[in-house]
Simulated scan of single mutants.
Amino acid sequence: MRFLSRRLVMPNDLNFAGSLFGGRILEWIDEEAYIYAACQLDAKSLVTKHIGAISFETSAYQGDVVEFGLGVKKVGRTSLTVTCVVRNKQTKQNICVADDIVFVHIDPATRTPEPHGKTQAELEDLKLETPE
């Protein structure tokens, strides 16, 4: 899993208890996973179909830098399933894990699913070409 981007936890990201609001982290996960999937498929006409198991493991607080690790889990004909791990940059503790995030490639005009044209093997080769 590659950790590709980071965010700073700001005051407006906090809940009443002073820790990172769960809804905010889910918003970030959806956005980061979309960017990752769009880059993997070289396509921007994707929609989020499903987000599976979500596990909150520890809290983040104002001033913490969180980083997003993403990886391809499964490649379908019209879909791509990714996993996202959010961790504290400094401590490396997992904050949240979102598994089975499914994106579907759609035709922009008809809004119906269409094949994205990538295979698991092509995405595996892409991983080998990308430096850690």
Results as ranks from 00 to 15, higher is better:
residue 1 M to K: 10
residue 1 M to R: 11
residue 2 R to K: 09
residue 3 F to G: 02
residue 3 F to P: 07
residue 4 L to V: 11
residue 6 R to C: 06
residue 7 R to F: 07
residue 9 V to K: 09
residue 10 M to N: 04
residue 11 P to K: 06
residue 11 P to R: 07
residue 12 N to K: 04
residue 12 N to G: 00
residue 14 L to P: 10
residue 15 N to S: 07
residue 16 F to D: 13
residue 18 G to E: 09
residue 18 G to D: 11
residue 20 L to F: 12
residue 21 F to L: 02
residue 22 G to H: 06
residue 23 G to N: 01
residue 24 R to M: 12
residue 26 L to M: 14
residue 29 I to P: 00
residue 32 E to G: 01
residue 33 A to H: 03
residue 36 Y to E: 01
residue 37 A to Y: 05
residue 37 A to V: 02
residue 39 C to D: 11
residue 43 A to N: 15
residue 44 K to L: 13
residue 45 S to P: 03
residue 45 S to Q: 13
residue 46 L to Y: 09
residue 47 V to E: 10
residue 48 T to P: 07
residue 49 K to D: 10
residue 50 H to M: 09
residue 51 I to C: 11
residue 51 I to V: 15
residue 51 I to A: 10
residue 54 I to H: 01
residue 55 S to P: 02
residue 55 S to R: 15
residue 56 F to D: 03
residue 57 E to Y: 02
residue 59 S to K: 14
residue 60 A to N: 03
residue 61 Y to A: 03
residue 63 G to A: 10
residue 64 D to C: 06
residue 64 D to W: 12
residue 66 V to H: 05
residue 67 E to Q: 15
residue 69 G to I: 03
residue 69 G to D: 05
residue 72 V to I: 13
residue 74 K to S: 08
residue 75 V to Y: 12
residue 75 V to P: 10
residue 77 R to Q: 04
residue 78 T to S: 14
residue 78 T to W: 06
residue 79 S to R: 08
residue 80 L to M: 06
residue 81 T to S: 13
residue 81 T to N: 12
residue 82 V to D: 05
residue 84 C to P: 05
residue 87 R to F: 10
residue 88 N to L: 14
residue 89 K to C: 03
residue 90 Q to R: 15
residue 90 Q to S: 15
residue 91 T to M: 11
residue 94 N to M: 11
residue 94 N to G: 01
residue 98 A to M: 03
residue 98 A to T: 03
residue 99 D to F: 05
residue 101 I to W: 03
residue 102 V to M: 09
residue 105 H to R: 06
residue 105 H to A: 01
residue 107 D to R: 05
residue 110 T to Y: 12
residue 110 T to D: 08
residue 111 R to Y: 12
residue 111 R to G: 00
residue 112 T to N: 14
residue 112 T to S: 11
residue 113 P to I: 09
residue 113 P to T: 06
residue 115 P to K: 10
residue 122 E to C: 00
residue 123 L to V: 07
residue 128 L to S: 10
residue 129 E to Q: 15
residue 130 T to V: 14
